[in-house]
Computed example of a mutant assay.
Amino acid sequence: MVREDEALSTNLANWESRVPVHVAAYGIDRFVEDPAHVSDVVRQDATALGDLTGLRVAHLQCHIGTDSVSLARLGAEVVGLDFSPSAIEAARDLSERARTPARFVEADVYEAVEVLGSGFDLVYTTVGIVGWLPSMTRWARVVAALLATGGRLYLRDGHGHPTLMTIDETRTDQQLVMTHPYFGGADPVRWEDDSSYTGEAGALTSPVTYEWHHPLSEIVQAVLDAGLVLTRLHEGDGLDWAFAPWMERGDDGRYRFPGEQRRAVPTEFTLEATRPR
């Protein structure tokens, strides 16, 4: 067992060590050279997000700001929040170099209302979100408090559907076998990996992380209990990264299981909800 504050401190050290790796891998120069360039993540979400012109957007767990800047380029008034000081510094540098105004605040996601205020038209959070949250209930209450009446939440976890996270990705026979529990608990799972999802083995000086597993039912119920109205729940078969080495990369740059395996397990989910008027 590990205390929540110890787990979060360990995770912070891990994400701090990821920042220089990701600054080098995320294609920052494209944002600087092309004023119309947006991230692949936001490009995938753009249709569902609709017209963002003039909307106040809170981007939670924004990391180094590539998606925040992209949202700003779609017309939003964006503030990004992340617990990593180095990530926030990198995000501010990106915003300045890309000549795309966005505000960035360093804070724990559970402190978002205290540091950002409320009245946002959209809370946006995507790709690798849920597993870093000790409590979905507390998180959903924060989201509800951030939103203006009629405002909406957009959550797409393209890092992994809760069902996908039960699969053993290390098998050499390429079979989909559940080895990790679907239903999580209060205690996080400890992982140690010195590579980032961008593929640089040995790059992380702080390789240990703690992650909390939340089944889809828990995520949805937390949103409902916070008083939000669920408007969309979608499960997909693609990923922004290769969860297992036998996944295949498509023409759209996304990774999927081959053949019939694609129909066997969802790999990501998108949840949208609104704060009722």
Rank of each mutant, 00 (worst) to 15 (best):
A58N: 10
H159W: 14
A24K: 04
I64W: 05
V127Q: 13
L8T: 13
E268D: 11
R262P: 08
T149G: 13
L12Y: 03
E4D: 14
V143N: 07
L216S: 04
Q44L: 09
G54L: 06
S84Y: 00
L233P: 03
V265S: 02
F269A: 03
A140D: 02
H213I: 09
A186D: 15
T137F: 10
E192H: 15
F269P: 00
E89H: 09
V38G: 13
E235M: 04
D193R: 14
A87T: 05
E6S: 14
S95A: 14
A145P: 06
V41T: 07
D168Q: 00
A145Q: 15
S206I: 01
W15R: 05
L147D: 00
A91R: 04
G236W: 00
Q174H: 14
D194G: 06
A102G: 13
A264Q: 14
V130S: 13
N14R: 07
A226C: 12
D194T: 12
T205A: 14
D67R: 07
W212R: 05
V109D: 02
D157L: 14
G202E: 06
F31I: 04
L147A: 08
R18G: 10
R254A: 11
A90G: 03
L49M: 02
E211P: 01
M1E: 15
P207W: 11
H59K: 07
H180R: 15
I219R: 03
A201L: 15
P101L: 09
A7Q: 13
G236I: 08
V105P: 05
V79C: 03
G253A: 02
V78R: 01
P85C: 01
A13F: 00
G253E: 06
P276T: 06
M178V: 12
V223Q: 00
D108W: 13
L116V: 07
A201P: 11
R30E: 08
A98R: 09
F257W: 03
V69F: 01
G236C: 08
L122D: 01
G158C: 04
N14M: 00
W212T: 08
I219Q: 11
A148W: 12
G238Y: 15
W241Y: 12
A46M: 04
E4G: 13
L233Q: 12
A112Q: 05
V41P: 04
M136E: 00
D173M: 11
H37L: 03
V42G: 02
L224A: 12
E16K: 06
S196K: 06
A90P: 04
P207Q: 10
